[in-house]
Design a protein around this nucleic acid. Sequence first.
DNA 1: AATGAATGAGCCTTCATTCAT
DNA 2: CATGAATGAAGGCTCATTCAT
Lengths: 205, 205, 205, 205
Amino acid sequence: MRMPSQNSTAARKPQRQRGHDRVAALLEAAGACFVEKGYEGTTMTEVAARAGAAIGSLYQFFPTKEALARALLEQYAQALYAELEKFTEPSANWTIEEWAEQLCTLLIAFRKRHRAFMSLVESMPRPAADGLSIRRRLRAELQALLARRAPHRSDEETYAAAVVVQQMMKGAAAIQEEPNMPGRQAALLQMQYAMQRYLHGVFGK
Amino acid sequence: MRMPSQNSTAARKPQRQRGHDRVAALLEAAGACFVEKGYEGTTMTEVAARAGAAIGSLYQFFPTKEALARALLEQYAQALYAELEKFTEPSANWTIEEWAEQLCTLLIAFRKRHRAFMSLVESMPRPAADGLSIRRRLRAELQALLARRAPHRSDEETYAAAVVVQQMMKGAAAIQEEPNMPGRQAALLQMQYAMQRYLHGVFGK
Amino acid sequence: MRMPSQNSTAARKPQRQRGHDRVAALLEAAGACFVEKGYEGTTMTEVAARAGAAIGSLYQFFPTKEALARALLEQYAQALYAELEKFTEPSANWTIEEWAEQLCTLLIAFRKRHRAFMSLVESMPRPAADGLSIRRRLRAELQALLARRAPHRSDEETYAAAVVVQQMMKGAAAIQEEPNMPGRQAALLQMQYAMQRYLHGVFGK
Amino acid sequence: MRMPSQNSTAARKPQRQRGHDRVAALLEAAGACFVEKGYEGTTMTEVAARAGAAIGSLYQFFPTKEALARALLEQYAQALYAELEKFTEPSANWTIEEWAEQLCTLLIAFRKRHRAFMSLVESMPRPAADGLSIRRRLRAELQALLARRAPHRSDEETYAAAVVVQQMMKGAAAIQEEPNMPGRQAALLQMQYAMQRYLHGVFGK
DNA sequence: AATGAATGAGCCTTCATTCAT
DNA sequence: CATGAATGAAGGCTCATTCAT
């Protein structure tokens, strides 16, 4: 049963609200699908079904499968940048080892919360690979963070270090994701240790 | 000694010269395709065409796309193990840093020569994921190598270290593969440096 | 009340007028194809074309060739059961010979109207053989009818009789279907006569 | 050197002992396959493999799948005619009931021994349907037998009776073939009884 | 907006049959 | 004759995307 629609200005808001919920549900469903089956394995039909929407509705908001993935990725990226922001301020007080530990902790927690992130970054097909640009942005972020800690280093040096840190974090994520891995915790700690050693070597006094 | 146990997804072995050549051509074509477009993006039709064979010929030897990928993977794995074998002997004379450098060099060279290796390991769909078992084998290999260098370490410790080394090598490979990456060489060197620092910290006297 | 338990090989139900029409057209086309070429000989492409639909539309409603055949079969089965229902009531007044004649008439007419029925029951591949269960149901129906006429007979006896009647009806259908058969009418009458003799022997006073 | 080729779809006759064995093995393998999977479901490759022969060898003797089936059918038909011959002589002494019983027994035993016979007769595709002609020949045979027993009957009458008898025998075979059928023996006996009643009614004094 | 039907290019795979050795 | 590789038309089915209601 439909409520008699209120006057045109008032009626708009609930409609938008509905739309918002829809989009949220769709993105969530998409995330779940991408995690479970990867980009190629995910079906637009299934995403819609999982969100309790019709296929047509899905296309109303996301004109393309790629757009859907991109939107999801973008959402994650924003969240990640927001979290990284917290590193800007207090990081000055930390030793480089503490800094590394915090970074590891943050990234690992983030990937645990948003499992589709990695999955998508890795499984989107090359030509469309938006994952690439996201990685680049994240890398720049890391570089900026590192540059702040070591202002005397050249851009080339901080860039290279950012690349290394990024790859190591990716490694940590992979460890997390691997099913039935024995000694996962120990391995993660070692990964963190490796990063600490590296950063100490490069930026430590 | 290997049983001739052709399980259903295994490749049929050619029995004539002609067949051998075909299989080689097909595998090569498959490798090229997988590199360029990943597992899902690769078409059996295209593989056949690229090898100058009819689609039926492809299926004569590889009953499935998956079998084709698996065969390729297996081929690479064997080659890699063979190369790693050379590490067993002389490594005793090396410092841990030299050892790490040699390993980096070897793996990087290997991936350059067999670009489909990584591509496939990463892009094969989970359930079939033969990549997983290959990674496990390689990890065991690394662990054995590390254990030889540090006999006083427990299995848990060497295993964790093997995991870390493996992830770092994957990172290096990713760096190599990334298109249009500025300062690639520097980054690779840093990656190697990171590994050396880590191994030094863990196994160095 | 029917559960909406769409098991994976079941047909999706259309929810719009347009869909209903499509499904009807598709089933009709399928029937025609199955009659002409049997189950294996029938092509999904051809069914779609014959119904003036795209191949995708066919699969929208019938996820499998088997599902299509099953749906058709089910439709016929329902129709047949409905017609047999009319036998329950008045049959008491008939002699066994009249009963047999009516049954022959009904079944022959039914098969003439729904020629795909038999074709499908016979040509569906064994493992999937839904034909089997349909036959079993029809057999049970016949047994019930016979049991009503001869309440003093044991279940075993009526079952065996039902089997015989069923096979004879199948024989009659085969006679009908055979192309260029001389003296078809006479043969059909003889078939009916055989059934009457048999039933008279078993259930007659 | 090629013999002036017989008609194109016929099987070539082997000319050496080895060839004979091969052909026998192939036919047997074919029979097994046809029973298990029907005509369409059977693969030339599988037949060859099952007979321990190469696919090329199979085609050396049977130029076509159809030819293979036909050859098998022909073989069975010959065997059946041979067995029916025994009916010519002594049948005069039997009552019609005895005659029917013997016929049932013989046919049932035959189908049990040559299970591919029925399977093939029923599953060969229409246009090629050699089954048809075989049925016709068998029908003629039956008619001849019946005519001998009842010389006063017209051709039309004996033909119709032959048709009925044939269908009933087919029904009996179906009963035999049906998996997990409870009370099979009883049903078979009833089938025989039905035939006896019928023949008694038509040809009995 | 929402819904669900429509579309069709394209994918993986099969298999009867032919051919070169 | 034997063998096994070669061939390619054709089939079942998927799925991103568009359209009509």
